[in-house]
């Protein structure tokens, strides 16, 4: 007999396997020996016969009414064969449902994230609008205050023969030291020329601003102390440092 088989049979693994008292690993080992070695298989068959004969020697007539009870109970039990597919189908359905729900939740989450991004952008734009409107309102309020101030003087500058249609209104507040102009009409000029406003200060012409038609009615211009007059000249594009007196088109003295 093979030495390995002898060692195996001298041990108690086969007896414990017979009694279902082996671990899964041990069971695998025993099954391997039974399959591979005829001596082990023969011994295992003998052990099973012994068990059956020994157990049979203690047989006691089983109550006949018990058979009917068992048959009745078995008939009322669902067959295990059918229960396995039902379980499998239930498990599959649950898995598919879970997958679908996961996808739906993910999809909804993506939509919500997108909505949130758009909403955040809208809020940001609205905030910017609010800030811009506040600034505009503040500016209008300031202009309104200046115009309604009793110490604000209004001066209308009309064009001479060089620019008959020119009309500009200037508002000067000596106390607040603020000046505004409202360009009502400006005759067209060649592209290389502009209308420039000047303040007459101590006999000199101080440049104030280039005039142009804007959406806003009032445009603030620099205020000059001891300002005695306002003048408009035609100057080369970009304006001049020194006024071209020959090109004076409108003026008003305070």
């Amino acid at each position: 007999m093979n030495e390995r088989v002898k060692i195996f049979l001298d041990g108690d693994l086969l007896e414990r396997y017979l009694m279902d008292a082996t671990s899964p690993m041990e069971s695998k080992e025993v099954e391997h020996y039974i399959e591979k070695y005829p001596e082990v298989k023969k011994t295992y068959i003998e052990l099973q016969e012994n068990l059956e004969e020994y157990a049979t020697s203690f047989a006691v007539p089983a109550p006949s009414e018990l058979k009917d009870k068992i048959l009745k109970e078995v008939q009322s039990k669902p067959k295990s064969k059918t229960s396995i597919p039902i379980l499998a189908i239930t498990a599959c359905a649950a898995t598919i449902l879970f997958g679908m729900m996961t996808f739906m939740i993910w999809n909804q989450n993506q939509e919500l994230l997108n909505d949130r991004r758009v909403t955040t952008q809208l809020i940001q734009e609205l905030n910017e609008d609010i800030v811009s409107n506040r600034e505009t309102l503040q500016s209008v309020e300031e202009q309104f205050m200046i115009l309604n101030n009793s110490s604000t003087e209004k001066y209308v500058l009309r064009g001479n023969t060089k620019a008959r249609k020119l009309e500009t209104v200037a508002y000067v507040n000596m106390l607040e030291k603020k000046s505004y102009v409202h360009v009502v009409a400006l005759p067209e000029l060649p592209d290389d020329q502009v209308y420039q406003m000047w303040a007459g200060v101590d006999g000199h012409m101080v440049p104030l601003d280039i005039l142009k038609i804007t959406k806003e009615n009032l445009v603030e211009i620099p205020y000059e102390e001891r300002m005695a007059s306002l003048n408009i000249t035609i100057e080369p594009k970009g304006g001049s440092e020194e006024a071209t007196v020959d090109n004076l088109v409108a003026n008003i003295s305070f």
């Binding site: 157990a55 203690f58 018990l66």
Partner: peptide, 23 residues
């Protein structure tokens, strides 16, 4: 899963198994 199996099992093995249960 033929229920006749239970009847045959009982007829052939119930006494020995009942003896085991009593032991």
């Amino acid at each position: 899963q033929d229920e006749r199996a239970i009847g045959l099992l009982y007829d052939h093995y119930a006494d020995a198994l009942f003896g085991v249960a009593i032991k």
